[in-house]
Write a protein that binds this DNA or RNA. Sequence first.
DNA 1: AAATTCAGCGTACACGTGTTCGCTAATATT
DNA 2: AATATTAGCGAACACGTGTACGCTGAATTT
Lengths: 207, 207
Amino acid sequence: MAGVRAAQKEKTRRALIQAAMNQLSAEHGYASLSLREVAREAGIAPTSFYRHFQNMEELGLTLVDEGGLTLRQLLRQSRQQIAKGGSIIRSSVTTFMEFVNNNTAIFRLLLQEKSGNSREFRLAVQREVEHFTAELVDYLVDEQQFDRDLAELHADAIARIVFSAGADALDASPAERQELLETTIAQVRIVARGAEATRALAKSLKS
Amino acid sequence: MAGVRAAQKEKTRRALIQAAMNQLSAEHGYASLSLREVAREAGIAPTSFYRHFQNMEELGLTLVDEGGLTLRQLLRQSRQQIAKGGSIIRSSVTTFMEFVNNNTAIFRLLLQEKSGNSREFRLAVQREVEHFTAELVDYLVDEQQFDRDLAELHADAIARIVFSAGADALDASPAERQELLETTIAQVRIVARGAEATRALAKSLKS
DNA sequence: AAATTCAGCGTACACGTGTTCGCTAATATT
DNA sequence: AATATTAGCGAACACGTGTACGCTGAATTT
């Protein structure tokens, strides 16, 4: 019966990841994250850390991956709910803000490493944002019949606005977050109208 | 003749600040900034650091102050260019991107501290961005006759897009920066069209 | 000319860090 | 039942960190 050992290993691996997340806070970022402290909180000896990750950096990249994955799953979920009817914009932005609320530590990590010190980290986060944008582009092209070029401008602008608003939400009170949500929705709608107007403009020039 | 000594002190104080900035831009962020390394690069003994700053944090706050000052210089510059006439959008975005080009270290610092670990730093940077936005709002209200509410949405969206693009520019090659500049201008124009469409929409509802 | 101030230095300390190396004991394989 | 594997541990090492202390020598004041 193989598996008891592997299960236990996976369990303490999760414990390490969880411990790292716990120690990530507004005051204490990834840069000042200590192997020894993480191991201590996970309940293992510092040296045992290496049975699970080669580096602290490998742990960090795992965190980034998990964060991006969670975000994408949520947004896909939210898009499926749209099929049932309702505003795409509102439900997508709301989902995003809920993610920020419920996964503050991870989102903060993503933000910090986006302009952080490690190039590898930066690229990893950039890849996550590109995933986000790419799915938006596909939606605009498939469902809204935008040209790909315009859709890319459109989606990229939205991504920048939404991520930036998410960053502000980290320091905001619940009331401020609610206002920020509405503001962001309104801004995304403005961008949508602008893209629509731009498309109409391009069409009229062609004929 | 008093002043020789004071002048020398100020000189090494500047050397410390400069050394800190050099190390910020290159490999380490503020979090992993070392008193000893800064002192070494400034050409003084580690212990002499305390003749100029009580803490590393005091040095950090000084850096942010200087960064904010430079950013304000940018804003003043930008405002003057707008006064001369020409495309507001193109000249504003271009000026901003030039600032990023010419003050990479400082912009990186501001960016990092914007989602950094110190609340005080975060608020300071946020206030700088709000300055930027506020001037844009004034322009939209005074020169373009927008309602204040809509102008705020509009300006805030633009600020988010431009700062986010500036962040991307840090890792970009000159060619990529050029493309980023054009992309950003196009996106800001989309937002402008969207705001215009939104204004028209609001008007038609009133009548 | 004598006295005072003080920027900068060298030494020293206590502490936290990442990482290496054998070892143990429980699990898995044969 | 005998053997091989391996998650986890404890000791130890080398290093970088912030900073306290007392000293020196030049600039400044008296």
